[in-house]
Write a protein that binds this DNA or RNA. Structure first.
Length: 580
RNA sequence: UGGGGUGUCGCCAAGUGGUAAGGCACAAGGUUUUGAUCCUUGCAUGCGUUGGUUCGAAUCCAGCCACCCCAGCCA
């Protein structure tokens, strides 16, 4: 397991404690008051290990772990691994890693639905014995025909009335491997005419002669989600089974399965068997998924983006995965605050990316040390300084937090400033350096541009400026200088690369049905790399932070994966707000 | 067209019959050696719509409209 200590990358690690009411919190409070589950609150986060976790999962994680913690309850981590075809150990590991990073600790050992395969099988036998399940030989296509449509009832399978003995025998032989994939399945005997198509004799078990990442070749029949999920919840003593809205129509099935089983046998198979709690069945409650504009959170599409190299991997900093956001420089605190601010409701909604951006700026502003880095360097010669001038200036690491200490910044005769901070003929409202004008060098002196040096083609070579030596730490006399720009010593600065990230898609809703292929709306400029940036030397010193606010530019973090000792690469997490 | 859901400010979202919280965004001021942060102010006579009940309705009732989910041996 990963270290939970470093879960939060912030200094204080505080998550906003201001929580607002939502219908799930209210329901739990109500259930507690009624002593519905003997005062217990036990939730679970149940991902299928078929991909990496993304920002949408973060909402569910925060909800499940959050409501448990708020009520002195527990939250399990359970991998819903009933479809080995799409799953892998790599995903299991990545998911655990992301949850820990977010700062949550699951109750006890990691669970797997596959832990319960033997119990699930026994319960299936129980259903067969009570005449509530049967083995059906219909193929997938035939089954679809028999199911009817949204407006027409289905028809009973010709195998629906097999005897209990025959069903038991067939099911045992399914397990024993006597049948090929798809040859038959175990189905619940409910109602082929139900207006809820989920209740038209759903499949409980299917045959798959395939290796499972947890159980190897032990099984060749695998239980379906609908059959597995409710029973797994019941076994783990889950009180509140929280899931997203699309499972709403499955709730009657969730309840049907649990109510069709002998409750004493469920209680006996459950984690609560050895306690003196009265056994109460879990209840499913649905909430709306988190969607973000300009973002795709569909696992299938994210996977496709990885596989077709639209991005460089699941942890590409442009990805909405937790691994990607982390590499981009998002903190766990920011993500948790964001999830809290978004709330939990039943409305289909698309949250504005601005909310996520606010959450990360808010956290980083409070906790990131400041440094100066010039992205597009232009040389400035401070003409009235001696050639060998070397002055060490002390600057605060944070403008408001003294405890973050100070750093040393060298000033030399030749420095660099950003190309965008100089305009020979300024546009209206420009308050940086202009020919003949003055500007403050952040943390240092006021300088005045006295000469603009160009080559024959008119291309800017360098700027000659005079330093007003009487302006260190004080305002110049008799005039006001409104502009402040950042700078770095040309000789003492260190060269590094910076990756500027932007949204991956240039349309608000890349998951909209009007868009056939997400490739149509890819933002070509989602990654721009600049390789000749110059930063103050403190960022490469022993014990330096891995994330900074590069003043006047934005928040950046070291890319640990691609940086090497002689080549630092910083990822831009987010720009500063820019109201100019 | 069957069933299940949802409609409160540009985006989230509280609100559960007593006269529309909050956040984001936006706008205007102020502070500032980051055009950042911070502070202050503004931002729904209105709660999909039409009727009804009531002294009083976003909240209750009826109709209508819009959108979402369900016809995998996926989850």
């Amino acid at each position: 397991m990963t270290d939970q200590k470093n879960a939060s990358t912030t200094l204080d690690g505080a998550v906003d404690s201001s929580t607002s009411s939502n219908f799930i919190r209210s329901k739990i409070a109500h259930d507690l008051k009624e002593e519905k589950h003997c005062g217990r609150v036990h939730t679970r986060f149940p991902p299928e290990p078929n991909g990496y976790l993304h920002i949408g999962h973060a909402k569910s994680i925060c909800l499940n772990f959050g409501v448990a913690a708020e009520n002195s309850g527990l939250c399990n981590l359970r991998f819903d691994d009933t479809n080995p075809e799409k799953e892998s150990q790599e995903y299991v590991d990545a998911i655990k890693e992301s949850i820990s990073w977010l700062g949550f600790q699951w109750n006890g050992d990691v669970r797997y639905s596959s832990n319960y395969f033997e119990q699930l099988y026994a319960f299936a036998l129980q259903l067969i014995e009570s005449g509530k399940a049967y083995v059906c030989d219909l193929g997938a296509n035939e089954m679809r025909e028999y199911r009817g449509s949204l407006t027409e009832p289905g028809r009973n399978s010709p195998h629906r009335d097999r005897s209990i003995e025959e069903n038991r025998d067939l099911f045992e032989r399914m397990r024993a491997g006597e049948f090929a994939d798809g040859a038959c399945s175990l189905r619940a005997k409910i109602d082929m005419a139900s207006p809820n198509v989920n209740m038209r004799d759903p499949v409980l078990y299917r045959i798959r002669h395939i290796e499972h990442h947890q159980t190897g070749s032990q099984w060749c029949i695998y239980p379906t989600y609908d059959y597995t999920h409710c029973i797994s919840d019941a076994i783990e003593g889950i009180t509140h089974s929280l899931c997203t809205l699309e499972f709403e129509g499955h709730r009657p099935l969730y309840d049907w399965i649990l109510n069709s089983l002998d409750i004493a046998s469920i209680a006996a198979a459950s984690d609560l068997a050895s306690t003196d709690n009265d056994y109460v069945l879990p209840q499913q409650t649905e909430f709306a998924k988190l969607k973000l504009n300009y973002t795709i959170v569909g696992k299938r599409k994210l996977k496709e983006m990885v596989e077709t190299n639209v991005v460089e991997g699941w942890d590409d900093p442009r990805m909405p995965t937790l691994a990607g956001l982390r590499r981009r420089g998002f903190t766990a605190t920011a993500i948790r605050n964001f999830c809290e601010s978004v709330g939990v409701a039943r409305n289909d909604s698309i949250v504005d990316l601005g909310m996520l951006e606010h959450a990360i700026r808010d956290d980083l502003d409070k906790n990131s040390p400041r440094a100066m880095c010039v992205l597009n360097p232009v040389t400035v010669v401070l003409t009235n300084l001696p050639d060998e001038h070397l002055e060490i200036l002390s600057m605060a690491n944070h403008p408001k937090v003294d405890e973050m200490g100070r750093r040393s910044v060298p000033l030399t005769k030749r420095i660099v400033i950003d190309a965008s901070d100089f305009q020979e003929v300024p546009v209206q409202g420009f308050k940086r350096l202009i020919a003949g004008g003055e500007v403050r060098l952040r943390g240092a002196y006021v300088i005045k541009c006295i000469d603009v040096i160009k080559d024959e083609a008119g291309k800017l070579i360098e700027l000659h400026c005079r330093v007003d030596l009487d302006t260190l730490g004080k305002k110049p006399e008799g005039r006001k200088v409104k502009g402040v720009i950042h700078w770095v010593s040309e000789a003492k600065g260190i060269t590094l690369s910076v990756r500027l990230y932007d949204r991956l898609f240039n349309v608000e809703n890349p998951e909209s049905k009007d868009i056939k292929d997400f490739r149509e709306c890819l933002n070509e400029d989602s990654l721009v790399e600049i390789t000749s940036c110059i930063a103050e030397p403190s960022i490469a010193e022993e014990g330096a932070s891995s994330s900074y606010q590069f003043e006047r530019e934005g928040y950046y973090c070291l890319d640990e994966k691609d940086s090497s000792e002689n080549k630092l690469i910083f990822n831009r997490t987010i720009t500063l707000r820019d109201s100019w």
